[in-house]
Design a protein around this nucleic acid. Structure first.
Lengths: 81, 81
DNA sequence: GCGGATTTGTACGTATGTATG
DNA sequence: GCATACATACGTACAAATCCG
């Protein structure tokens, strides 16, 4: 899985790689329902990508219905249906 | 409607205003099905906003199923169902 | 098939605004 | 008021796909 590292030279876009990583963490329960996803700033530092890239990744998860974002608060893992 | 102008001081985001403008043009038939939406560069010049803003606006239309985008080709108005 | 022009895709960085706590 | 976190908007650079001569 190479979980945790992002390769900018990969044909898979960085935001996709990050979305996959977070997706896997949600699936595995490492990120629990109702708990917050790390803040954008934290993810920027942790994965060494720009904030825009982090936002794109989270957007993917949001579109997939996996997380919910609230301005000023954070992004949270959605309850499983 | 003030169709055609974008006000950066409005509480309505610029990308939303542009999406609404293009949406209206599609609805009115000014932009016909299967015909191309003006290129990002053209929209940048025409409305005086950044390319990122133009892309955000088109993304809204794409998510709404109003247009289809192909890399290297352009964005096209979808056939009405 | 090649090369250039055009157009969309990705990624970076920066600044400022808005909402929450 | 202040700190934190997300939202919007700008600009820049380069990659990838398409088109056309």
């Amino acid at each position: 899985m190479a979980a945790g590292k992002i390769d900018l030279r990969s044909p898979v876009p960085a935001y996709r790689q990050l979305a996959d990583i977070l997706h896997a963490q949600i699936e595995s329960g490492q990120l629990e329902p109702d708990s917050p996803v790390p803040s954008e700033t934290t993810l920027v530092q942790r994965y060494g990508v720009a904030r825009g890239t982090v936002r794109r990744a989270i957007e993917v998860l949001r579109d997939a219905g996996l997380v919910v974002t609230v301005q000023g608060r954070g992004t949270y893992v959605r309850q499983r249906s």
